[in-house]
């Protein structure tokens, strides 16, 4: 039964991807991209990746649609040229697809427990997580503790991308007029009332995902994205100025940098206490408690950075809109 459902979802994925490429109106393409992400999240959930599904749903269907739309507002929504020379790319693509599909016949079947991926490293994580870290969610344990270096790197990539966006969009000509004050959706009473009602619940759910990440699907990346979505909704409803009043851009800058510093700081604290970089066992007298504390702080750092970075990116696009 679940196989049928998976095949249905995967086929829809292919159809929506082809539609995204074919459709002329970029606005429609971005909306289809949101559907594509939601289908992808459902597929991830069927494949037992609850954490990844939550991330894809929050980021792909939520944040990325808003950011792409605010960028579209600056560039125009129509694709002006038909594809000029389509036969050569089509030929290349067809040949490559056939080759990759031919190569898949050597791959292990879906769900095969004997597949090479499941033989090395992963069993060790599954076996030792209850003993060394003692939190139920192995994904969080691997993310924050066993592979903490990786995650630190990813956090700095997010930080760097945010700085890049601010550099590229922050520069404006001297004689550019000041952005006009936006009023938000003043004439749309119903969305505004319902949206206002929802914002606190979205932020609350984000905090739940942040601090429940040790026990169920969730963690800093998802929580940061969900909270950012809530504040973006507030910005769409009440206007840019109101949102910047609630969460000023100086605070956002402090969040982007502070989260990364918090993550790195935990690592440095571990060195000062006599352990290795990002080895949380020394943070408390009991190694397992130390791991809990370390994971909590690190996830908090991730959440703060991701939330700050996504909001800064959103505001950078939105501030350009009224030139």
């Amino acid at each position: 039964m679940i196989v049928l459902f998976a095949i249905f979802l995967l086929t829809l994925l292919v159809i929506s991807a082809i539609a995204i490429v074919r459709v002329k109106n970029l606005f429609v393409a971005v909306m289809l991209m949101g559907i594509f992400s939601l289908l992808m999240a459902s597929t991830f959930f069927i494949l037992d990746a609850a954490d990844v599904a939550l991330t894809e749903a929050a980021i792909g269907a939520g944040v990325s649609t808003i950011i792409l739309l605010s960028a579209l507002a600056l560039t125009g929504e129509h694709e002006r040229f038909a594809t000029a020379n389509r036969w050569l790319p089509l030929l290349v693509v067809t040949i490559t697809t056939t080759t990759i599909i031919y190569a898949t016949f050597d791959k292990p079947r879906l769900g095969d427990p004997e597949a090479p991926v499941h033989q090395h490293v992963a069993p060790w994580y599954l076996q030792n997580t209850p003993e060394l870290i003692d939190i139920p969610n192995v994904v969080t344990a691997v993310l924050a503790s066993f592979r903490g270096y990786d995650t630190l790197g990813e956090v700095f990539v997010v930080l760097t991308a945010c700085i890049g966006v601010l550099f590229v969009l922050g520069a404006r000509p001297e004689d550019a007029p000041k952005p006009a004050k936006q009023q938000g959706l003043r004439h749309h009473l119903i969305p505004k009332v319902v949206g206002r009602l929802l914002v606190p619940f979205i932020v609350l759910f984000g905090l739940y995902v942040q601090f429940h990440g040790d026990f169920g699907p969730g963690g800093g990346f998802q929580a940061g994205a969900i909270i950012a979505t809530g504040i973006m909704l507030y910005a769409v409803l009440e206007g840019e100025t109101a949102a910047l009043k609630a969460v000023p851009s100086s605070l956002l800058m402090a969040m982007v940098a502070g989260g990364a510093i918090l993550y790195g700081g935990v690592g440095v604290a571990a060195i000062l206490l006599g352990g290795n970089f990002l080895d949380y066992s020394v943070l408390s007298s009991n190694p397992v408690d130390g791991q809990h504390l370390g994971i909590l702080l690190v996830e908090l750092g991730v959440g703060i950075t991701v939330c700050g970075a996504l909001l800064s990116i959103f505001h950078a696009f939105a501030a350009r809109e009224h030139k």
Partner: peptide
């Protein structure tokens, strides 16, 4: 199921949106 690919992709999704925004 194997937690390792999930960890890799979870972080990659967030990095993906950041780079797309750039």
């Amino acid at each position: 199921s194997n937690p390792l690919p999930q960890v890799l992709i979870l972080t990659a999704i967030v990095v993906g949106i950041s780079t797309t925004a750039l």
